[in-house]
Design a binder for these strands. Structure first.
Lengths: 115, 115
DNA sequence: GTCAACCATAGACTATGCTCTAAGGTTAAC
DNA sequence: GTTAACCTTAGAGCATAGTCTATGGTTGAC
């Protein structure tokens, strides 16, 4: 599929996809049999990557952190052990964030009680 | 206390405090009995405000959102009802964020299992 | 054969949240 | 009386994460 279709499938703008591509989060490929244009083609993995990016962004991860998660999942130069380590660190980061959110909930609840 | 002491008490830089002051999140006051300089003085409430700001930032709130929380707590032009409404919306936002974090945890756990 | 609808690259612009520099004033210690 | 250590305002600069514009190429419908 071309970038426009990918954008529609993933629910992001074409601009954003190009931005992510420059950042290294998704990668389109040129079809060597087509010489008249240099359009990039994307596969289902690109859709999966974009969905992962959106979820991870909602969870408060930066693009840098998301790039590590994506590498842990897709990059074949990592050993399974390394991949596991990266993902476990992200899991820990999520637990820390949840802890902070709960602390903030407590602060707001205390405010509400004092009103 | 002056800005330097406030910065040390709250654990932020003087620059950051001035930035927050321009943003309206903290406010120093001039002592009218002092005419030789125009230094701003801060009270304990400023320390509390900065602590609240740091906690809320950790919880992923933007300065705009934090400004609403601070107004709900300190601004006397709001009725108790209005204050309660604002804080309850923030509580809901926190619950939504926690939900997103848990979803991301699930995604990463699934990845870990598949490795 | 031209118009719409795509595609590409390059780079300018924006918002958020700082962070730092410049330029100048006051005060306290030596 | 000058040096250090503060204070002030004004504004420049930076990182992140987009968002948009300019410019130009290809293709298909009419």
């Amino acid at each position: 599929m071309l970038i426009n279709e990918l954008a529609k499938r993933a629910g992001v703008s074409v601009h954003t996809i190009r931005f992510y591509e420059r950042y290294g989060l998704v990668r389109g490929h040129r079809d060597p049999t087509i010489t008249s244009n240099n359009h990039l083609h994307y596969d289902e993995e690109s859709v999966d990557r974009l969905e992962l990016i959106l979820d991870a962004k909602s969870a408060g991860f930066t693009l840098q952190e998301i790039s590590e998660i994506i590498d842990a999942w897709y990059k074949d130069t990592y050993t399974k052990r390394e991949k596991r380590q990266i993902l476990e660190r992200k899991l820990q980061a999520l637990d820390d964030k949840i802890k902070e959110l709960r602390q903030m909930k407590k602060i707001i609840k205390d405010c509400l009680e004092e009103i």
